[in-house]
């Protein structure tokens, strides 16, 4: 059974890789340079889609966690683990590429820019999610604990977002260039949308592979335990 999920997943992931290569070509050879920020703005076509995927992954984690607690369906927990692992990869990408952009655009690696701050906190929520799971001897309990972390995290994220925005409005930073300047040039918009599509398809594909892995791992554990 897991072999078939693997096949569809592989095809989707390959499509995602192909789209990502297309994005690379668009970013480095096709899209015009943005007038205000210059070359560095090209990080945007990958950074923003990565952030979108990181938050979408957490949406999946929270939804699957709620389903798991509600119905006790093992598949929901497998989906949640798979999405959380992807989420931690993509928050990692956002957190490393954000400062690379910030150093050039804003003159500093780190600012308490609300969206960057939110991503950092999301990263730590993901870390907690995995630590809870890893540190629980009874795996059934670990799954429930992790689900609770996922759900409370999702409920708290809007509040965190509002509060870090508000905090920022109290402490304006002088050197910040507005990232969302005037409306985006159509070519830039096309590149950005392709970026969104590429990372989303890639994520969904790899998510299916990861789900297949989780299922195979659990099948193995079960058979090793029952002999």
């Amino acid at each position: 059974m897991y072999k078939r999920t693997g096949w569809i997943g592989t095809a989707t992931a390959l499509l995602g890789v192909a789209l990502s290569v297309l994005v690379l070509w668009m970013v480095f050879f096709w899209v015009p340079t943005e007038a205000n920020q210059g070359v560095i703005q090209r990080i945007f076509y990958m950074h923003v889609p990565a952030a979108w995927v990181a938050f979408m992954a957490f949406g999946i984690v929270a939804f699957a966690s709620a389903v798991y607690l509600w119905l006790g369906d093992e598949r929901a927990d497998m989906a949640a683990v798979a999405a959380a692992e992807g989420g931690i990869i993509f928050t990692g990408i956002v957190l490393l590429t954000g400062p690379l952009w910030g150093k050039i655009a804003w003159g500093t690696y780190w600012t308490w820019e609300p969206r960057l701050t939110l991503t950092l906190l999301l990263f730590f929520i993901y870390v907690g999610y995995f630590m809870v799971r890893a540190a629980t001897e009874n795996p059934e309990k670990g799954k429930r604990f992790a689900a609770v972390v996922g759900i409370v995290g999702a409920l708290d994220i809007p509040l965190i977002h509002v509060s870090v925005l508000w905090f920022r409005s109290l402490h304006p930073e002088p050197v910040v260039l507005k990232a969302e300047g005037p409306t985006l040039d159509p070519d830039m918009l096309t590149t950005l949308l392709t970026g969104f599509l590429a990372f989303t398809v890639l994520f969904v594909g790899v998510l299916m592979l990861r789900y297949g892995l989780e299922r195979a791992e659990r099948e193995l554990n079960l058979r090793q335990v029952t002999g």
């Binding site: 907690g128 630590m131 965190i160 509060s163």
Partner: peptide, 9 residues
């Protein structure tokens, strides 16, 4: 580790 990120607000 679990509560500090959530305590920001």
């Amino acid at each position: 580790i679990l509560v500090f990120p959530l305590l920001v607000p």
